[in-house]
């Protein structure tokens, strides 16, 4: 395999680090140092990196993955020393009356991240999507029902008839009924609540991972609403 020349290595490292710098104050303020640390780490392990490439993805993507992991190592070792104040950026941006162009780009990027995170729920993606929509009182489409229930979707059409003023207990009881119809599991609303809370927690952790953001259930609901409009 062809060895990476220094200029290309530097270029790829800059791209990875500058992306992290968008969301990480330390990285933003010390970009050059982080780049050099990443490059140094890469050069030390270069032979091993080259030998480990398996061609299951393109070479460039593989290098990005390696450099990103090294960048994360550098940032983790430094972030512990920093005292960073985190703000809830998404809520601030979306709650403004007039959203600027930059803010729109930001929201689109966050929506894209949310979609990617949802895809990684794999066989639970359809169920998570539908249950979150029901929980957040968003419009449910036939496609959402079919994705979860396939040919049995007519058994859960009642999920489209909900009103906005439902109590949380009733929401989870309805979802438990849906689980019983589709998955043949006789569970109670509480079990659905625990499962859905777990899914929401995973989404929130992943949205906040490796960056200075503070998504919570409120800002997640706003982002989810945006993603579905």
């Amino acid at each position: 395999m062809k060895k990476l020349d220094y200029d290309t290595l530097l270029e790829l490292s800059c791209k990875v680090v500058s992306r992290h710098a968008k969301y990480n104050t330390y990285c933003k303020n010390n970009q050059e140092d982080v780049i050099m640390s990443v490059v140094e780490k890469f050069l030390i392990k270069e032979k091993h990196i080259l030998d480990s490439f398996k061609a299951t993805a393109s070479l460039k993507t593989y290098y990005y993955a390696v450099l990103n992991r090294m960048c994360l190592e550098v940032l983790r070792s430094e972030m512990g020393k920093q005292n960073i104040i985190v703000e809830n950026e998404v809520l601030d941006v979306i709650s403004e009356k007039e959203i600027s162009f930059e803010a729109k780009i930001f929201i689109e990027e966050e929506v894209s991240r949310l979609k990617t995170i949802m895809v990684m729920f794999d066989d639970e993606m359809a169920k998570t999507n539908l249950f979150l929509k029901y929980y957040y009182r968003l419009l449910i489409k036939i496609f959402d029902l079919k994705s979860y229930a396939l040919s049995k979707y007519k058994d859960i059409l009642f999920l489209r008839d909900s009103n906005k003023e439902m109590k949380k207990a009733d929401i989870f009881n309805d979802l438990a009924l849906a689980v019983k119809s589709i998955e043949n599991k006789g569970i109670k609303g509480d079990a659905v609540r625990i499962w859905l809370n777990k899914q929401m927690d995973i989404i929130i952790v992943r949205l906040n991972k490796n960056r200075e953001s503070k998504y919570d259930k409120d800002s997640l609901s706003i982002l989810f609403d945006y993603a579905n409009n």
Partner: peptide
């Protein structure tokens, strides 16, 4: 999170 970052890149 790494995969999500890589995908965005």
């Amino acid at each position: 999170s790494e995969v999500e970052f890589m995908f965005a890149m």
